[in-house]
Write a protein that binds this DNA or RNA. Structure first.
Lengths: 238, 238
DNA sequence: CGCCCACTTGAAGCAGCTCAATTGAAGTGG
DNA sequence: CCACTTCAATTGAGCTGCTTCAAGTGGGCG
């Protein structure tokens, strides 16, 4: 085992770090540890002091915020190449939410300060990070728009379509299976609704042959119709 | 009139540019034009090609997105020191929304590319921008949480409290007036609800003596109670 | 085998939306 | 200065999408 050179090799493969000078990557790699998280395992908890930044090698994770009233809201989901905790480390506050793996996930972990130092020396990396944050803000705005203007049905359809792209696995019969454990409760937290409403919605779709679903899993048979529902074009003229 | 040196002076006063080397500021100032927008005037429209970045000197502005179904959603509001359009220019796409002044506003406008160039040469500025974006993402997450988990009443109260801090002006009688034209429709778009619901809510608060309101204006008499409502502690035991 | 837990289903209630009719106040023009 | 227009705001009534509470089902795992 050579953990550091291992980290070094993995870092070099991440798009975010393409074209970054070797010596800088070496410095990062020195402080980097590879970690593995099973489904349900937290990377950090809401209120923990923010120190560590994570880069996702593979897997699927989410960031959840617990409200004062006891509800959980999923703020974002992450896949390969995504960075978790960057902005919080930057602002030197506590983590505003809990990050946990939804699927078996491989991540690289290192002190935020180091990424920070490297960024100040390398404009390219700073630009990449800024672009990444820009994308995240864009997604956040999309969710605000959806939560403000769309119905639960639409939002659930939308989140399924997104999951389709992120963790969809084609089945022998042509359907696409979501390759993570995904409970009704999870879908509810993603869409600002209740598990009962999700259950009723999925049941209705199952009866129309759009999906098949079981305990903590969803298989999409008819992605096209799902997209129509997401765009509110289902059952409309035209 | 010396528009460029004028811009130079204004730039140097903005916190974002404190400590940035003079020559860099000069380059920025060269390309900068000061512009003034009256209430209701758009800085840019949704779909316009993004080229210009704005820095707010004074005033109050908002970013609105129009949904496919014809509803408008206010994504963010801006005051002195805020930067508008930065991320969009960065991603070289069209503006995803319309930016318009709510109050008489003074802004500096310059091509995004230039700010971009300056940032790649000056780590400090890059850090400042990143922190600013971090703050914006934080706000966006807060709104997602609120839209997901809170009721309309709470959200309206919350947005009034925010406006209190941003554009509140103390009156002789101790109340605080919001120093912008703010219609029920505006409040509805800020909170993902309808103007009728806003109207009923404000009427109820007016009867409790918490606020006074007229055509496109709101005066807050009892900020404390408003905060309680925002936190859902109003009418609760304790 | 039996418990656990995700899920389903029902029924009731209500928060907020929609549609619609007025009101009232601030401009505008004669 | 008054009549007219315009547009924000109010108010009512009905409805519905969603939540809430509650009871029951079934598959998987110890």
């Amino acid at each position: 085992m050579e953990p550091i050179s291992d980290s070094r090799r993995l870092l070099a493969q991440i798009p975010l770090f393409q074209g970054i000078p070797g010596p800088l990557l070496d410095r990062l790699a020195q402080a980097t540890r590879r970690r593995r998280f099973g489904p349900g395992t937290p990377l950090f908890r809401q209120g923990d002091e923010a120190q560590t930044v994570f880069v996702v090698i593979s897997g699927y994770l989410r960031l959840v915020q617990h409200t004062a009233e006891g509800k959980d809201v999923t703020m974002a989901t992450f896949g390969a190449g995504d960075v978790i905790g960057l902005l919080v480390v930057l602002s030197e506050e506590a983590y505003p939410g809990t990050a946990e793996a939804l699927a078996e996930s491989d991540v690289l972990a290192f002190p935020g300060q180091i990424l920070w130092d490297v960024m100040s020396e390398n404009g390219l990396l700073a630009v990449r990070v800024l672009r990444m944050i820009a994308g995240r803000l864009h997604e956040a705005h999309a969710r605000i728009r959806e939560l403000s203007a769309e119905r639960v049905q639409q939002r659930i359809a939308r989140s399924l379509v997104r999951l389709l792209r992120q963790v969809g696995v084609k089945q022998p019969d042509g359907a696409i299976r979501l390759d993570i454990r995904l409970s009704r409760q999870d879908l509810a937290q993603l869409n600002g609704t209740t598990l009962e409403t999700v259950s009723r919605t999925l049941t209705a779709w199952e009866q129309r042959g759009i999906i098949e679903s079981g305990r903590e899993q969803v298989v999409v048979r008819d992605p096209h119709t799902l997209v129509l529902i997401a765009e509110d074009l289902d059952t409309l003229p035209g």
